[in-house]
């Protein structure tokens, strides 16, 4: 039931228009961080206020919404945001990647390939990829303007010097359509190859930092690397212990006090779908006969 006390999807129409303008500008200039007047939302910063505002601005009554947190549909953050939009927008919700028209995500890209017509909304804590090496905002904006991106490689250089390889495993910087260097939000670098040439629209919202940026469909997205240390989309060298998948991104779960652990798909919808299709992993429950 829609709570009639709120406008559709919580935000007023003027605010949604303002956010849509920022989104359109972001789509027109892929990877460029567009400032927007982020609103106070009824949840704390760090819980996805940027993503929620972008989602609110995109939703129509016909949309089907899916919300995931670290790939899972059933964690607190995902559940509360899903309920928020059920209540304020009355839209249908789903846990199926294929059924959803709008997917809000924190820290993952779904395993199932996205399709045209879908919108993937990322929650972003720190949108500025240069921030950790150059703290001055005026200077980082100037660096984007003038395409001075040597500093990004200094970060990767430091990784190799210290760890023998590029140890950055999430929020791995990318260059969008040969122009802007972008922080893809803290998704694992395993997901980076899915950013490029994607049929869906990808939108990034940072509430506290008041920035929106976007990757339009079928855009070139390249992960930064060195000629002699090329980018590798790594994952844990295991199969999923529940569905046996060997190609999906895995979470490591500690299961007892003796150091026992299991690896399971971080994408719960993907894993459940495989299990329903009869796939089994090392620790799958015994078949109920």
């Amino acid at each position: 039931m829609t709570d009639q006390a709120y406008n559709f999807a919580y935000l007023d129409e003027q605010t949604k228009r303002m956010i849509r303008r920022a989104i359109l500008k972001g789509l027109a200039v892929p990877g460029y961080q567009v400032p927007f007047a982020s609103r106070e939302m009824p949840m704390p910063y760090g819980w996805g206020t940027g993503g929620v505002q972008v989602t609110a601005a995109c939703l129509t009554p016909e949309d089907v919404l899916k919300v995931i947190d670290q790939g899972a549909d059933d964690t607190t953050n995902a559940v509360s945001i899903r309920k928020f939009f059920q209540r304020t927008a009355g839209v249908r919700v789903t846990e199926s990647t294929g059924e959803a028209s709008v997917i809000q995500t924190r820290h993952r890209i779904p395993e199932a390939p996205l399709r045209e017509g879908q919108i993937l909304v990322y929650q972003v804590p720190i949108p500025e990829p240069l921030r950790f090496l150059e703290p001055r905002e005026a200077e980082t904006r100037k660096m984007h303007e003038l395409e001075e991106y040597g500093l990004m490689h200094v970060k990767l250089y430091e990784d190799i010097a210290r760890h023998g390889e590029i140890a950055t495993s999430y929020a791995y910087p990318v260059k969008v359509e040969g122009r802007y260097v972008m922080d893809p939000s803290p998704i694992p670098k395993f997901d980076n190859p899915k950013l490029g040439d994607c049929p869906a629209i990808q939108l990034f919202g940072a509430g506290r930092e008041q920035r929106i940026y976007a990757v339009p469909p079928y855009t070139q997205v390249v992960s930064l690397d060195f000629d002699d240390h090329p980018f590798v989309a790594s994952k844990a060298p295991h199969d999923c212990d529940l569905c046996g998948a060997d190609e999906s991104y895995l979470d490591e779960v500690i299961i007892d006090d003796a150091g026992g652990r299991m690896f399971v798909c971080s994408d719960t919808d993907f894993c459940a779908g495989r299990q329903a299709a009869g796939h089994r992993g090392r620790l799958s429950p015994a078949e109920v006969v």
Binding site: L133, E148, Y149, G150, L151, H153, V154, Y157, E158, I160, A161, R162, D225, F226, D227, D228, H229
Partner: peptide, 22 residues
């Protein structure tokens, strides 16, 4: 850059002009 190693400090200008071979 005080937070970057000596090698990274020297290498920055090279990377800024396009050096991509570690």
């Amino acid at each position: 850059r005080m937070g970057v190693s000596a090698g990274g400090n020297v290498g920055e200008r090279l990377m800024a002009v396009g050096a991509r071979h570690y």
